[in-house]
């Protein structure tokens, strides 16, 4: 009854903070307004509703779309870092394990940026220093010359041991995919391991993550199918640890030539309703958006089920990430003259 130490984490404090933050996130009407604006107008609009500090800080160095994109990512990184610093105990452990995905994202951005010959500023625009590596650490990685040095230093900083076979496969093919696949698999493996399933909220979080793995695998299979890749080759990209889609189903999905023959199996999955139309019209873009929407709905539902758990925190993070993605999407779409209906279809609200 009196076991009230800090080991369990300050759920009430952190959840109250994220709920307050969530109430300030943009709604559908904000996106509708932004779709009628030009990029400078969007920049001004978002400056007034929470992104002002980052926009002002970067305004001296950047302008236009670059300023907007960098400021939104910087804001997201600051918000996530502040959530992490305000949490304690097992909550801190779970949030930090979840945020490792941004370390992986940052390494991918740096390696890809380098391979495309981007300068340091160009790479920095897409970085989200919300994980365990600070902006300074990431700057040190950007300053390194070769990919080998970057990977080795990242391994030391983020305590990741790259297996020799992954490194040798990367060196032989020069394909960053080998490194990226290893990192994604490692992230989910570590995340699943970090969750202690002894309490109901933790078990719910574990279920949520395992369903996220299912969605990622499903997305991978259909993305590769759209490129004409099927069969055994697909299976090496599969992340282990899913909840609803077992090995037999994964093999079945991977081996099928098209989605039509799989309808009876796919219709058993929880997210079928969200992707039904996209599957019928064979529209990969809508399917990905549908899966994102399902993830957000699920996080929202879970957060109401257990308010004093890590799930409301993750729910907020997913919504914040979606907000930033939507702002960037509208700005990029407007800049490139994309039709408003197309932009609207791509938004995840």
């Amino acid at each position: 009854m009196f076991r009230r130490n800090g080991r369990k984490g300050n759920y009430a404090y952190t959840v109250a903070r994220v709920k307050a933050k969530k109430s300030l996130l943009m709604g559908e009407e904000d996106y509708s307004k932004m779709m009628m604006m030009t990029v400078p107008e969007i920049s001004r609009y978002i400056s007034e509703i929470g992104y002002g500090k980052e926009m002002a800080d970067l305004a001296g160095r950047m302008s236009g779309l670059a300023l907007l994109e960098h400021a939104t990512y910087l804001n997201m990184a600051k918000v996530f870092s502040s959530i992490l610093s305000s949490s304690t105990g097992e909550l801190y452990g779970m949030v930090s394990a979840y945020l490792v995905k941004w370390d992986i994202w940052n390494l991918k951005v740096i390696l890809r940026g380098k391979s495309y010959g981007l300068d340091a500023e160009g790479i920095r625009e897409d970085l989200v220093p919300a994980g365990s590596l600070s902006a300074e650490s990431l700057d040190r990685l950007i300053a390194l010359e070769t990919d080998d040095d970057i990977i080795a230093n990242f391994g030391k900083m983020a305590r990741v041991n790259f297996p020799a076979d992954v490194l040798s496969a990367y060196k032989a093919s020069g394909n960053l995919g080998d490194i990226e696949d290893f990192l994604d698999k490692m992230h989910y493996e570590k995340l699943i391991q970090s969750i202690d399933p002894s309490s109901r909220p933790s078990r719910l979080f574990l279920d949520y993550i395992r369903e996220e793995v299912d969605i990622k695998n499903f997305e991978t299979i259909f993305k590769l199918k759209a490129e004409g890749i099927i069969g055994e080759q697909v299976m090496k990209y599969i992340i282990p640890g899913g909840k609803k889609i077992d090995g037999r189903q994964l093999t079945l999905f991977a081996n099928a030539e098209n989605a039509e023959s799989l309808i009876s199996d796919i219709s058993q999955l929880d997210f079928y309703e969200n992707i039904k139309d996209a599957l019928e019209s064979n529209n990969l873009r809508d399917m990905v958006s549908g899966l994102k929407r399902y993830e957000m709905q699920k996080a929202k539902k879970f957060s109401h089920l257990y308010p004093l758990s890590v799930i409301p925190v993750i729910d907020y993070m997913i919504h914040k990430e979606s907000e930033v993605r939507n702002i960037r999407l509208i700005a990029r779409g407007t800049e490139s003259g994309l039709d408003r209906d197309v932009i609207k279809g791509l938004l995840v609200i």
Partner: peptide, 10 residues
């Protein structure tokens, strides 16, 4: 704890 968290934000 929740009250202090909420006041911090608003």
């Amino acid at each position: 704890a929740a009250a202090v968290g909420a006041i911090t934000e608003d």
